[in-house]
Design a binder for these strands. Structure first.
Lengths: 197, 197, 197, 197
DNA sequence: AATGAATGAGGATTCATTCAT
DNA sequence: GATGAATGAATCCTCATTCAT
C-alpha cells in the first residue's frame, strides 16, 4: 500500500558491500565540513548530499543526529588524547592541539560550551562524555601550581572561555583570537597544530 | 430593531493606533521569554502566540527574525549604556550590569559571540552595531592600565570569553561561572544586577 | 536558517478567512472518500490533495490522524443518533440506518471492530467513545426479550459481526451481505437508508 | 604457516542448499510472529531480521508482500483441511479448529474478510483461493438442514461474521467473543483448538 | 492596523526493492 | 544461495511568509 516504486525505474549503481566503510567515512567528512559552515543543527539531508549518498545510508550508519555529531567530534577528541598520550607530552603542547581544534571546528566549540539553553540541542549526553575525555587529557598533565589548577572547575571554564573567544571568518582570525584569549588567561600555549602534523 | 446589528459583533480587538505600540512591546516581551525557553531559533509563531497577537502583527513590526532579536537585545544594551551613563559610574559597576545580562539571556550571549558560523543565524549585521555600543559603554570607563586595556581587541575578547563560560540550568549556575571567568581574567566585577535594581 | 522561501515565488490565491469553514468541510468530505477507497491509514497528504488544500491546512484543522478520522466518523454516528432520537423510532429503523452506514464507509466498519491488533492503529480512544454512542443509540430502543438483549455484550458483538460480513465491490453487494448477516442473526432490520432521506 | 588463512574467515553462514528450506521455514515462522505483534503491514525488513536472514533471502523466497502472507495463511488453512480430512470429522469439530485459528491470527482473520477496500492490501487474489479451500473443507461436512446450509453464501458469510466479532487483547478475550458469535448464529461449535492438539 | 488562514517548501524518517560481493 | 548496503520515493510534520478580510 505504501511504497511501491514505479517498477524498473532508473536505479543508480550499487557499489556493494565494500562501499560501506567508505561511505561512513565520507559521511563523517561531509558532516565535518557542513558543521563547520552551518553549525550542529545543519540538515542531515545536506550531509548525505555532500557525502554523495542517499538519505538512508546516513540513517543506516548513524541512528540519529547526535550519533553523527559524536562521530565527528570523536575524532577531534581522540587527537587531543593522542597528543596527551605521547611520551614527553606536557600541558603546553596538549593545549596547542586543543586550540587547533577549537579554531578548526565550530562543532567542537559547541561541544565545549554544551548546555547553552536549547540552542545546541544536538549532542546531549554524548557531549558530557566527550568533554570529560578532553578534561581528563588535560588534567593528566596539569602541573601543581598551574594557573588553572586552583578551583576544580577552573580548567574547563577556561577552555569554554577560549571557545567563546574564537570567532572570525578565517582560521587565522580564529587562531589569533584564541591565542589572545589564552594570553589574557595567563596560560602558556604551545604550537597550534593538529596532532601528528 | 430587527435590523440593528449587535455592535462589535465581529470586531477583532482593534483598539486603535495606540494598540500598535502596546503590541510591539508585547511582542518584545514575548520574544524575550520564548528565547529564554527555547533559544533564538524558536518559531516566530510561538512569539506571536505568546504575545497574544496575530502573525501579521509580528511581521508588521519586524521585517524578519533578526529584527525581533535585535529589538530584544536592544533593551539589554540600553541598560548597559544607562549604567555607563550614570554619574559616578565606573568599569567595575558597568561590568556587573553587563554580567547580569550575560547570565540572564541566551540571546544576549549569542550577540557577544557574534559571527560564529551560521549557528546563530539571527543577529547578522545588527549584531555588530549592538556589540559596538556595548564596547563603547565599557571603554568609556576603562582606566589607563586596566587589565583589558592592552591590545585593542582585548576588551571585547574578554567579554566574549565570559560569555563562553556562561552555561548551566539556573541563573545562579550561570552567575557563578561568569564570576569564575572574570576571576580567571583577573578582572574585578561589581554587583551582578540589572540596571536600576 | 531553515525555511527561507526563495522570495517572491509564485503564490496561489489566499481566499481569506471565509475559506476556513469551507476547507474544513472539504477536508472531511475528502477524507471520507479517501477512507472509502483506501482505509483509515491512507496518507494524510492524499486527503489534503483531494480536498484541494495545502498540507498545512489539514494540520491546522486536525491535530493528528485520529482527529480526522473522528471528524468523519462523527457524522456517521450522529446520523444514527438522530435516527434514534426521532419520535416513533424503533430498533428496526435504527438498525436500518446503522446498516446503511456500514455499507457506505469502510472507516465506519473499522470503528465497529476496533482493536484488531495494530491494524487499525488510527482511532484509538476516540473509537470507544464513538462506538459507545452507537451502542447507546441502539440500546435505547432495544425491547425486552429482543434477540440481542440477552448477554450484555451481544448487541455490539452482533454489530461487529455484521461489519465483518460486509464486503464487496459495490454498495449493493455490501448491502446484500449485510442483510444476509442480519437474517442469519435472526434480527429484523428496516429500510437500509441514511437518516433523513 | 604464515600464509595459512584462517578458514571460514569471512564465510557468511551458507550451509548449502538445505539451508534454503530452513530459511523459508524461518521466514514463515518469523512472519507469523511479526504479524501477530504488528499486523499485516509490518515492514518486511522486520520479518527478515526476526528470521535471522538477510533481506535478499526474503525476496528470493517470496516475490512480494502478499506471497509472505499467503505462505503464513497456508499453514492455517492446511490445518483446517487436515481436521476436515480426519476419519470421523464433523462440522462441529472442524468449526472448532477454524475458530481456533480465528482467535490466533490477525492475518487469518483478514483473510476471511477479504476484499474490504484497500485496507488489507496484502492477500489479493491469493486470498480467494485460500478462502475457497476453507469453504470446501467446511462444506464437505455440512449436513443437510444445517443452520448455514440455506443460501449458498450463508456459510462463508457466517465465517466472516465471526471473524468480525473477534477482537480483544488476549486470545481468551477473542475466544469468548468468537463463541458468543457462533451462539448468536445458533451454530454449535466443538472444542476450540489447533489441529492435532 | 489586526487577524488568522492558507500555502508550500524543507527537513526527518521509514521502507520496499535492487544488487555487488 | 546468502548477505546486507544503498537508493530514493513517500509520508509526516513544521514553519516562514503572504494576504483576504
Amino acid at each position: 500500500m505504501t511504497q511501491q516504486r514505479t517498477r524498473d525505474e532508473r536505479r543508480p549503481a550499487n557499489d556493494g558491500r565494500k562501499a560501506a566503510a567508505r561511505n561512513r567515512a565520507a559521511l563523517i567528512a561531509a558532516a565535518r565540513e557542513i558543521y563547520a559552515d552551518s553549525g550542529l543543527n545543519a540538515p542531515l539531508s545536506a550531509i548525505a548530499r555532500r557525502a554523495g549518498v542517499g538519505q538512508g545510508v546516513l540513517y543506516r550508519h548513524f541512528p540519529d543526529r547526535a550519533a553523527v555529531a559524536t562521530a565527528v567530534l570523536d575524532e577531534n577528541v581522540r587527537q587531543i588524547e593522542q597528543a596527551a598520550a605521547e611520551p614527553g607530552a606536557d600541558i603546553v603542547g596538549v593545549l596547542g592541539v586543543l586550540t587547533w581544534h577549537q579554531t578548526q571546528s565550530a562543532a567542537f566549540i559547541s561541544l565545549l560550551h554544551a548546555d547553552r539553553a536549547g540552542e545546541v540541542s544536538a549532542v546531549p549526553e554524548y557531549a558530557s562524555a566527550l568533554s570529560g575525555r578532553v578534561e581528563r587529557a588535560l588534567r593528566r598533565h596539569l602541573p601543581a601550581g598551574h594557573r588553572l589548577g586552583g578551583e576544580r572547575e577552573d580548567l574547563m571554564i577556561a577552555v569554554a572561555m577560549v571557545s567563546g573567544a574564537v570567532a572570525g571568518p578565517t582560521r587565522e582570525h580564529r587562531e589569533r583570537r584564541a591565542l589572545a584569549a589564552w594570553r589574557l588567561l595567563g596560560v602558556e600555549v604551545g604550537a597550534v597544530r593538529p596532532y601528528g602534523e
